[in-house]
Nucleic acid binder design. Structure first.
Lengths: 165, 165
DNA sequence: GTCATTATATTCGGTCCCGAACGATCGCCG
DNA sequence: CGGCGATCGTTCGGGACCGAATATAATGAC
């Protein structure tokens, strides 16, 4: 993620460059570390768990959402997966071509479209997710249980705050 | 980000769906909240600060890196920005067309390429970043100073752990 | 019942994104 | 000094990504 600079060097360069600008450095570090950690984690999980599955990160997230919630309307899947509905249309097209999920018409509203896992998709998630979770555990290996809970809790506050906004 | 489900509903659905699988839920919540928060923050900053600048998120990150570090070799910029060198080539092409940055040959190694901000790009960052930082502060508004520091610290541990891996 | 408003998924253009393949260049070792 | 393995940025193909425009369908007003 940070390439040939250490985090310490990065912090020093930033402090030097921005020292005169009267900024909220605590907020900056919290936010930029969320983004950096997220990228690093995504890269790690793509390279370890997803590598040989043919799934992209977003494809996996979409599968996960449909797995957890069961057959769902596309706009809910897009919202849960954190992507636009336009993007979801394309991702579903890809996942449909792999026979991992299927579309069906909404029973009463012909504008809407339902998405569900196929048996293949269901099996894939059942096999994949324990591996995925093992790598998640690896990612937070250096944190104590208390730190993990506080981390999740603080992020949840951020999320709820942004949802209200 | 989470659409029409509350986080609480999401947590319940996941616990119900995965209860039998013997997973590390603390790790799962920490990791998935990092990803969710990161997406939500990115969306928020794109919609507020970046909206009228013509910059994409990645374009802004690349500009930021070159701003902080000064004129740099492209492979360092790619690493700092967390994108592949192939992607960076395209992003630089876009930013060059806006006259926000420019390429120049490395003084001694003709394989390498240097990237620097133009005067326009420099001015843009100087004007943009205080706004950006104000929104960063808004994002973590619900956290205490102590929580912000612990959040940044925990994420830094995660990052350093993944860098070593 | 009709028409305007609203809500839905899809399409489209431009950008980002990765990894693999490529061509140019460099550094080293003989 | 010659060649060859390593390193660099670019290109390419396939996919993800957004927001605006579009087409279709449901809803509400009257």
């Amino acid at each position: 993620m940070t390439g040939h600079h250490t985090m310490r060097q990065t912090e020093e360069a930033i402090a030097e460059r921005l020292g005169a600008l009267n900024l909220d450095f605590e907020a900056m570090w919290a936010v930029s570390n969320i983004y950096r950690a997220s990228s690093a984690i995504r890269n790690h999980l793509e390279r370890t768990v997803l590598r040989d599955t043919g799934l992209t990160w977003t494809g996996f997230v979409v599968m996960w959402v449909v797995w957890i919630w069961g057959e769902s309307e596309t706009r809910h899947v897009a919202a849960e997966a954190g992507i636009s509905k336009g993007t979801l249309t394309g991702v579903i097209k890809t996942l449909e071509s792999y026979r991992h999920l299927r579309r069906s018409p909404h029973p009463t509203d012909r504008r809407r479209v339902m998405v569900a896992l196929t048996a293949t998709g269901e099996r894939l998630m059942r096999e994949l997710f324990p591996d995925f979770n093992r790598q998640e555990a690896f990612v937070v290996k250096e944190l104590t249980g208390e730190q993990r809970r506080e981390l999740a809790g603080s992020l949840r506050l951020v999320l709820e705050h942004l949802e209200r906004a």
